[in-house]
Design a protein around this nucleic acid. Sequence first.
RNA 1: GCACUUGUGGCGAAAUUGGUAGACGCGCCAGACUUAGGAUCUGGUGACUUCGGUCGUGUAGGUUCGAGUCCUAUCAGGUGCACCA
Length: 946
Amino acid sequence: MEYNFREIEKKWHAVWAEQQTYRVTEDAARPKFYVLNMFPYPSGAGLHVGHPLGYIASDIYARYKRQKGYNVLNPMGYDAYGLPAEQYAIQTGQHPAITTVNNINRYREQLDKIGFSFDWSREVRTCDPQYYHWTQWAFERMFESYYDRRQDRACPIFELEAAFSAHGTEGVDAACSEDLTFTADEWNGWDSVKRQQVLMNYRIAYLGETMVNWCPKLGTVLANDEVVEGVSERGGYPVVQKKMKQWCLRVSAYAQRLLDGLDTIDWTESLKETQRNWIGRSEGTEVEFTVKDSDVHFTIFTTRADTMFGVTFMVLAPESELVAQLTTDTQRTEVDAYLEATKKRTERERIADRRVTGVFTGSYAINPFTGEAIPVWVSDYVLAGYGTGAIMAVPAHDSRDYAFARHFGLPVIPLIEGCDVSEESFDAKEGIVCNSPRPDVKPYVDFSLNGLTVKEAIAATKKYVSEHHLGRVKVNYRLRDAIFSRQRYWGEPFPVYYKDGMPQLIPEDCLPLELPEVKTYEPTESGEPPLGHAARWAWDTEARCVVDNTRIDNCTVFPLELNTMPGFAGSSAYYLRYMDPHNDKALVSAEADNYWKNVDLYVGGTEHATGHLIYSRFWNKFLHDYGYSCTEEPFQKLVNQGMIQGRSNFVYRVKDTNTFVSLGLKDGYDVTPIHVDVNLVENDVLDLDRFKAWRPEYATADFILEDGKYVCGWAVEKMSKSMFNVVNPDMIIERYGADTLRLYEMFLGPINQSKPWDSNGIDGCARFLRKFWNLFFDADGAFCVSDETPAKESLKTLHKLIKKVSEDIEVFSYNTAISAFMIAVGELASQKCRSRQVLETVVTLIAPFTPHVAEELWQRLGHTATVCDAPWPAFDEAYLKEDTVTLSVSFNGKTRFTMDFPADASNADVESTVLASEQAAKYLAGMQVVKVIVVPKRIVNIVLKK
RNA sequence: GCACUUGUGGCGAAAUUGGUAGACGCGCCAGACUUAGGAUCUGGUGACUUCGGUCGUGUAGGUUCGAGUCCUAUCAGGUGCACCA
């Protein structure tokens, strides 16, 4: 009987859907296992063969775990808010919701064909009000919280209010935007608006005036991870720095916990390293500098406290508030001109053009160690957002300071014995400190670092600075708070209205606050976000509902927030929602959360390393602080699937003709390579008729063939429409079936490696499945298995397979597992194995990989239950025992011959037998045996000398 | 510049973790069955070779009876971060 994958796959898709085979419920009697894929953004282009790679890998694992007896949660949903749908809406006027639903339907259709074990009853869509209810809810919880550094967790903001009312800032250690100090009397004397302004400094979701990445072309701000090399990640438009009032999340408060958590989770080292870089912890010292002839003083941050004696100037960031204070009248014009010029430069320009610029403020700071007056400059190489926005410059030991000093002729004082700073700075943190203090300068403080190593000197300075109240030890993080506002339509609305200019929350029981309809999706004429077009977008505090804007002058009606939330809002806690997707009382019930806990296996690409994977961890930690999520880390194990690149094909057109020359002959002509649709090419051979039909201009094309074929050139490029190299899984499934697609995608290589899609090998997988199918049918095509006792060799083949496949799945080495299947099927075929016992077990083993064919054979074998619940077979070492083992015999490391031994032969037996053997005699002649090494079951090496 | 990561046939890749390098698949070669083959089946396929062997895992050293695997240096590709003081 023919292997008819079309019929088989169609049949089982219907059965699985009808019987809800993959539906799961919490079951305390069984251990849980939570498998998760990063949910897709449903783009208009549909799925290409790269998308299912991770889904197939996780599906195999999910099915395997289910057969192992776990209660497996394997959900799927859609990250449905996003820019493309909105851009499309701006162009066509079509509501993004319509575009999104269409795309989702297309995705679903494609996904269904591949035979995943998703529990679709748990599907979530981030744009669904029932879903974003809980995104808004989480935002409200963050607004109502501050981060208590003492307890190292988020706490309700009313506790902070109570503390302020009782004793002001005294005794409070809370994460904040700006260090404030006030007394209880001051606090109690302030009015409500002033208090709200102060609290905003502490809230975890806060409204802050911050420098943002503004993309004029997109009309919105972008998060740091959405900006790549000074242009927007989507669209590649220029991004400028701009000061704006924005919603922010105090992610920075969690920096240390985000860093520490990495040690507790099973992610690849490179991904953890990427996050460590992004968090950018740096231990250093804050030192206070006073300004000469002034009562102004300011703080700098340094990791090189050992270089205090070599400071020759100070630099402020142009954005620093100190600039205005320190600029003297004589320097004012020059400084203002510099600030103006700097403002005009975009991030991109600053990166592209790293010339040394700066200007003297006219003020001098006093070095607290040497008492010297050192000039204070302004330069854009100092960043406002890091440290204190001010630095002490040590040109001898920092290359940026060095470049600045050389450019402006400032002194350079070396502080490491024997270092040469005539050409460049000595940046390495090593060597013996000297010139600290310098012999020619009268010591200002009774403190010397001379003779210490850099490391010792840093420690000594930290100690000294702390003890003498010149500064403090400080840990800085590069991680910045996440900007949480977007000036877009297609996103979650903030559950916020404004009263007296201060944001107020929509009551929790009124959520969700649904996204209103708008006339157009562009910004308003006054530059407000698209929600400014909404006619019904005001909040009536009395009626507790959304009302018409025109009623705003009514004293109970207030304007609603016009910004929406960014893409990462909806994806930050979706894994929790899958646990309990229809709950309308909570994000997730405590019971569901306690059962499913966190994701055991998360599969997705590395591109989210500094975006979603940081935000999600932050979000979860916040929810964990309140007990809404019972685990500290959301994703226990993370597997990164590699990207599938495209493999483009080229034809070579002879210049100024309509003649195309085959790859091997093209060197004889002047040719232009042209991308040709890879779907017209098979094994790099062009289908001439379909090529002619592809484009009207090729209808009359001529070809110069080699061996009667037109061979195309190829290159590995990104998979994209414009390169004509997009391979759609539907076409593969149509031709080979979903099981072959699944098998082939996994056979391509290790899942974590990027590789080009290349259909050339797919026939091998199709052939294998046919051979596998044929094991169950006799020459006449009748289904044929026997209940006879299987041959010993078949059992050996089987148990070898069980062992290998079980081990390989555990470590995601699917390509080698599939190789093992190929070998086993070949062996069983040549053994003419018809044993039900053996064949049935092979079906249960292959079921995670090729569920459709396994299900069909399982049914034909007489089972009524699904193969998904067939228990995973145990392997028995007894079948793998060999009677004899073959050892390689080497002399001085060179293998000369092999010998057979009984499997239980002792090393001593082996040694004496080998030495006495005829084959060995010729190598032993005239030699002396120094040593004999016997590696059990492998090798015998005899070391000889003359 | 810093960090991480990968280098093995014509190609995708294996290698029991220090023990016969190249499993398995593609491609290629030969044969069988065929009117036909882009179908199916069987066998062969790292390089050189005087057919005894010799050389082979980016390059150069080292440790070891034995190295793709461990150590040192170096080269090349990929990814991430990057005026972070």
